[in-house]
Design a protein around this nucleic acid. Structure first.
Lengths: 237, 237
DNA sequence: CTAAAAATTTGTTTCCGCTACAATTTTTCG
DNA sequence: CGAAAAATTGTAGCGGAAACAAATTTTTAG
């Protein structure tokens, strides 16, 4: 306990050893962690896309990355997260679109804009782009990956419900029924969009052609949502 | 009224290949199989509700049912199905409601009727009834059971999409985009209804009170859906 | 009734995801 | 440097799930 005193005498809040110094540079530990994580993820993705998710054991990934099995689970809680590592980004995109929407823009309008933007930018989370086929095929071929993707949709839905509740002036931590219903319907509609654009690519339709037609599909789908949610989100309290 | 009955009572008698003669009598083998299945399911449910899903191994269930572990997996493909054994029934209820709807009734109207009927009958698949608390608590406490429930929603969605496509004069095996979108939104909305009624019970609200208020919530939710799907389903081709 | 055929159950083995624990190494920072 | 914190590792083990052949039971044909 004498240690605590000395900490206090230094007059500063002690930062965790792994954190970055205040000047923005990363400590050695943090840098190595990022590299290790990157290496594990890259080796895993490569192996999975090459041989299939269920045909590669976590131990193999660990060996390929020059690390122990336990370390793999230290970075990625579940095997599925080795491949589906952009779920947090998807959550942030959706929540960010609602939070950072224009002054006169409804949440639904902001989400429509995000969907169109992901499409035109060929963003992986938009589902359309060159060279995604093998990834999608790998995911669809493995039941556990499909399950994880479904679970991710649930996470997005929960986060969106919070954001919608906040937009309506409520508590993001306890979204009301309107917010939950709106979030569920929006995510459900968005998921059908995603599945369709992925399916078309896997059927061999050229990306440019899909892009043109899918824009209209996105607009139509959000029009359907807009009918259900006239205010573009839950009612303002 | 006759419709209501037929909608809810469309129970499936499942018959596998190699079943007993068509006269309705069951062979000895089939009878024993049913008993064994019943025994396994009953023992499993009892053990899970008592001690929690993750705290009971399949081997224990097998021992309690006087059967080998492999036999358990022979009847129930996954451990989760030991507890969530009414998923096929849920699919049949939803599909049956659409298929068996009245001549002038839209698919959405038929589903609304089904939802209200499950509520008033205190049907387990409606989520409201006396003595379901422990079951719901057990499901919510186990991540794998929650995942299985999510997966079940996906199965219902796929089946509903087929039924809606069929109702619109299309091929049930290849539902068009409108049918898929409608099914996704309907199931999403229905799921929020289910979660809400379960949550309220777990919070201790008396069943009768929840029942009265939840009827209004169901009507409101289906009104929202009806705005999104003006024809009560995908457009008729 | 008997015997062959079919279906079901079983034991055993094996693999893999994942967790717990304790020990060890590495990094940080005074 | 030296102590504390954090990260990594090995070992061990649990439990779900699949594969396989062997054994048992039920059905069915003669």
């Amino acid at each position: 306990m004498t240690e605590e005193k000395s900490v206090a005498e230094r007059g500063g809040v002690r930062r965790d050893a792994g954190d970055a110094p205040d000047d923005g540079t990363l400590g050695l530990r943090e840098r190595k962690k990022r590299l290790t994580r990157q290496r594990i993820s890259a080796e895993a993705t490569s192996l999975f896309l090459e041989r299939g998710f269920d045909e590669v054991a976590v131990a193999e990934v660990a060996r390929a990355a020059g690390v122990s099995t336990m370390t793999v689970f230290n970075y990625f809680p579940r095997k599925e997260d080795l491949l589906l590592d952009r779920i947090p980004e998807a959550v942030e995109l959706v929540v960010g679109a609602v939070r950072g929407r224009g002054a006169e823009e409804s949440p639904l309008a902001a989400l429509r804009r995000l969907a169109l933007e992901l499409l035109t930018r060929r963003h992986p989370l938009g589902g359309l782009g060159e060279g995604f086929e093998r990834f999608f095929r790998t995911v669809l071929a493995a039941p556990s990956l499909r399950a994880r993707a479904r679970e991710a949709a649930g996470e997005i839905e929960a986060a969106l419900a919070g954001a919608l509740a906040e937009a309506a002036g409520g508590d993001p931590a306890r979204p009301d029924r309107d917010a939950r219903l709106a979030a569920a319907m929006i995510v459900a509609a968005w998921r059908t969009l995603y599945v369709e654009v992925v399916t078309r690519q896997l059927e061999g339709d050229p990306v440019e052609e899909v892009a043109v037609e899918h824009e209209a599909v996105i607009r139509h789908t959000f029009d359907v949502l807009a009918r259900a949610l006239p205010d573009g989100g839950p009612e303002r309290s």
